[in-house]
């Protein structure tokens, strides 16, 4: 049972902030790291796997800082995003070499077990350069599993996989999680995360936007009070209508044009607003969320 703890971790590259004050704890089971491209997922995984120093804060595995601590790789299996492996080796040779580098007692047996786990026996004697993307992903996975690690970190493992390979990986990750390993994978596709992860961490623009199981994430998106700017041809009349409805908690009339509306029940608000406007014959000119971070998370979840 291993636990990765990030405590107020930030990482910046000169004046660009990639990860901004993130604290999270990754325990046994499968955790999905969800976020759009550029959200800081790869930076976060690089810091968890000891390939990047946090600019501030700490990243620890069972209490030990990961950075510059190579002995921790006994417990960590890393599947990097980049495809390059040792292309002129066969898949079997590559996994055996990884087992040897871990100084395992029986590297060949360990390699064969790992190759069997990812079901790559039929292709193990072919050179990696002849593999498809999905096969490369699996042989990388075998190389990360060869020492039976307690922690498995995967950076965008589903990229480039066809639906069958995807199902296979989903099943494999679930199994790893059920065995009590701490598994974390990143993805920008909600559907993938939803199918595998028992726990989801959402990153948006370098910030830790949300955390929980899928239901909790979805509730967070819909139940949290959020703000909208609404502009109509008769703001005051709509304001009185809105405040009479349970979906809204507050309405402020702007000094210029428009209403600032605080919504507590998004689902209801989305249905009620057009009905109210229609029955009162008010023309809606603009409806726009003004809570930036929420907007991006929300837009992201909707589009996925």
């Amino acid at each position: 049972m291993s636990e990765i703890v990030l405590d107020q971790v930030s990482r910046w590259y000169s004046n660009v902030v990639a990860v901004n004050d993130v604290s999270m704890t990754i325990g046994p089971g499968v955790t999905g790291l969800l976020g759009p491209n550029g959200a800081g997922k790869s930076t976060l995984i690089a810091m968890m796997s000891g390939f990047l120093a946090p600019s501030s804060g700490t990243v620890t595995l069972d209490g030990i800082p990961v950075w510059r601590h190579e002995q921790l790789y006994r417990q960590i299996g890393l599947v990097p995003e980049r495809e390059a492996a040792y292309d002129n080796l066969t898949g079997g040779q590559f996994v055996v070499a990884n087992a040897e580098l871990h100084a395992l007692a029986d590297p060949i047996a360990a390699a064969m077990t790992a190759i069997a786990t990812v079901e790559m026996q039929p292709a193990q004697d072919r050179k990696i350069s002849t593999y498809s993307k999905g096969m490369k992903q699996r042989i990388k996975m075998a190389s990360a599993l060869v020492h039976d690690p307690a922690v498995l970190l995967l950076d965008e493992p589903f990229n480039g996989m066809d639906p069958r390979q995807r199902l296979h990986l989903i099943e494999l990750l679930r199994r790893m999680g059920n065995e009590g390993r701490t598994v974390m994978f990143s993805s920008h596709i909600l559907e993938e995360v939803e199918q595998v992860a028992s726990h989801i961490e959402v990153m948006v623009a370098g910030r830790h936007a949300a955390s929980g199981d899928f239901g909790a994430i979805r509730r967070l998106m819909t139940d949290r009070p959020n703000r909208y700017l609404i502009r109509t041809d008769d703001d005051r009349r709509l304001a009185s209508q809105l405040i009479g409805d349970a979906s809204c908690r507050g309405v402020i009339m702007r000094s210029d044009d428009g209403l600032d509306v605080e919504v507590v029940d998004f689902g209801r608000f989305a249905v009620v607003l057009p009905q109210l406007a229609h029955s009162a014959e008010i023309r809606l000119l603009e409806v726009k969320p003004t809570d930036e971070s929420l907007e991006s998370v929300f837009a992201y979840l909707v589009s996925a």
């Binding site: 190579e70 006994r74 960590i76 580098l101």
Partner: peptide, 15 residues
Amino acid sequence: DDGSIVYLLAKPISR
């Protein structure tokens, strides 16, 4: 350059 050094470095071996 191609990133495959990761497979050597993600091991409990002295640098």
